[in-house]
Computed example of a mutant assay.
Amino acid sequence: LRKEGKKVGVIAVDPSSPFSGGAILADRIRMQHHFLDEGVFIRSMATRGSMGGLSKATNNAVNVLDSCGFYYIIVETIGVGQDEIDIVKISKTTLVAFAPGLGDDMQAMKAGIMEIGDIFVINKADRDDADKTERDINIMLELNQKKNDWKPQVLKTVATTGAGIKELMEAIHSHKDFVSRNSGVFEDKEIYKGEMEITEILRERLIDKAFEKISNEGGIRSYAKRVAAREMDAYSAVEKILSLM
Results as ranks from 00 to 15, higher is better:
Ile220Asp: 03
Gly219Arg: 04
Val179Ser: 01
Ser222His: 02
Glu204Met: 06
Gly219Phe: 09
Asn182Gly: 02
Phe211Arg: 07
Glu195Met: 14
Arg205Lys: 12
Leu168Asn: 00
His175Trp: 09
Phe186Met: 13
Glu195Gly: 04
Glu195Thr: 12
Lys176Glu: 15
Val179Leu: 12
Phe186Pro: 00
Ile214His: 03
Ile191Asn: 09
Lys176Met: 15
Glu187Ser: 13
Ser174Arg: 02
Tyr223Gly: 00
Met196His: 08
Leu168Thr: 03
Ile214Val: 15
Thr199Asn: 08
Glu212Asn: 14
Lys193Asp: 06
Gly194Trp: 13
Ser215Lys: 06
Glu204Asn: 08
Glu190Ala: 07
Ser174Met: 10
Glu200Gly: 08
Met196Leu: 10
Arg205Pro: 00
Gly218Gln: 08
Ile201Ala: 06
Arg181Pro: 01
Gly194Tyr: 10
Ser222Tyr: 02
Ala210Ile: 08
Lys193Ala: 14
Val185Lys: 00
His173Cys: 05
Lys189Val: 02
Gly218Pro: 03
Ala171Asn: 01
Met169Trp: 09
Lys209Asp: 14
Phe178Asp: 00
Ile191Ala: 09
Phe211Met: 14
Ile220Ser: 01
Ala210Thr: 03
His175Thr: 03
Lys209Trp: 13
Ile220Trp: 03
Ala210Arg: 01
His175Gly: 05
Arg221Glu: 05
Lys213Leu: 12
Lys176Ile: 15
His175Ile: 07
Arg203Glu: 11
Asp208Tyr: 05
Met196Trp: 08
Glu204Arg: 08
Glu197Cys: 04
Phe178Arg: 05
